[in-house]
Amino acid sequence: MSEQTLEIPCNIPADAVNPVEPFLRMDRMPHIWCPGCGIGTTVNCFTRALIDSHANLDKVAIVSGIGCTGRVAGYANLDSFHTTHGRAIPFATGLKLANPELQVVVYSGDGDLFAIGGNHFIHAARRNMDLKVICVNNLTYAMTGGQTAPTTPSKVISATNPYGVFEPAFNLVALAEAAGASYVARWTTFHVKQLSRSMEEVLRKKGFCFIEVISPCPTLYQRRNKMGDGLDTMKYYKQASKIRHGAPTAECDLTKSGEIVVGKFVDRDRPSYFEMLNSQMTETLGDRYAEPEVMCEQC
């Protein structure tokens, strides 16, 4: 740490390092996120999950789309890809197909994954592509000024609905389950321990896994709706969240200021894309089928 540190009455060992730092490109700090934004908190949880899962970090790739959460890839000290708006999942699909030994994590926002990228999300879930999708859901398009997203709850004031949102919002966990995801969980940025544990679980699980993290956007969502700052939002999460593991996802809609059902909703085993590919081709072609060797030293 090059910056000045506060004179604090703690005896800090000289070799103490913030455990998040080895996972970040420290030469890119400070990050662009606003005061009270929850994205950094989710990054902490992700790094703790990487530590706890003993992942080989050289074999973890992170793919983001566009938006505030889309910047996570740029800060993560991993093989990282900042792709186009909505297309993190298909990029990640190609990466995984070409190099199946990679642990491919898609880290992006709700607008990116569920509006412009919604089609790719449902198809990757349908295929049970071995991707770990972490969606930081701040219920709005934050980077572009707080426009209505497919996740913005009814009655909320946004840049594009100054008199209140009237379109129904997507229930992301129900959508993920219906599309075929193997693992579906939702937490808020208040639930750092549970979120970190969930992330660790998906790093160990095969197939398409989805974690939704409800996160404050004090600058554009809470402020416009007179819901206070990031800390007020965290207190709201603490007070309004109900942990209901296994709850039917259809009952987990989010509202402007109501209860937030969190927990692990789906954890099932479906054949992965590779398993289905190999089984179908073996059934049809028998001995003539060889599993694809897409990694080529010569190319």
């Binding site: 093989d79 297309r87 699909t93 070409a98 198809h123 897409v294 080529c296």
Partner: peptide, 22 residues
Amino acid sequence: MEDELAASITIQGAVWGGAKAF
């Protein structure tokens, strides 16, 4: 893939994963 938007970037993911793709 589900559409041309997906196909045109899936190939690029594959390339960075070490494959050739079109």
